[in-house]
């Protein structure tokens, strides 16, 4: 949380600092009338910089508000949706294997072994395919 606020504060500080530049540059332009075009150009450039800084501040704010939670494991809509709702029937199924009657824990474990084994075979097979493809093509 502190990192998030720090990032946000830094971004705002940058934005504020750049916003103060145009007035100073306009003042300098008034004081030295022989160089108005160059200074006005510099003023415009500073205003553009202020605009970029605003965008940077927005991005920093967005990042500060979301990056931290993106990077933490097991939080987010997918966590609740997939592990809380979509896979719920699977949890019920596994519980029923071991809690209802007639039951046989060794057969329940056989079922669990099949679940884990098939998942491993599926993704392990893809891993092997990846290695083969990597060796042949890349």
């Amino acid at each position: 949380m502190s990192t998030r606020h720090a990032a946000s504060n830094v971004a705002h500080a940058v934005s504020d600092a750049v916003h103060t530049l145009p007035d100073e540059l306009h003042a300098a332009s008034d004081a030295v009338p022989t160089l108005p075009d160059e200074l006005h150009a510099a003023s415009d450039a500073a205003a553009s910089a202020a605009g970029y800084a605003d965008v940077a501040a927005s991005i920093a704010n967005y990042a500060a508000a979301s990056t931290a939670s993106y990077s933490l494991p097991f939080v987010g809509p997918g966590t609740y949706l997939i592990f809380g709702i979509v896979l719920l029937p699977v949890y019920v199924m596994i519980l029923a294997w071991f809690l209802g009657d007639p039951r046989d824990n060794s057969k329940g474990l056989l079922g669990i072994g099949y679940l884990i084994g098939l998942t491993t075979v599926l993704w392990g097979g893809l891993l092997v395919a990846t290695l083969v493809i990597g060796a042949v093509f890349f």
């Binding site: 993106y70 990077s71 933490l72 494991p73 097991f74 939080v75 987010g76 809509p77 997918g78 966590t79 949706l81 997939i82 979509v86 896979l87 699977v90 998942t119 599926l122 993704w123």
Partner: peptide, 17 residues
Amino acid sequence: TRVQWSPLMWDVTVITA
């Protein structure tokens, strides 16, 4: 980490299941 947010990852997860 991406399964928290990405529908593509949800898809991969549920099809595997």
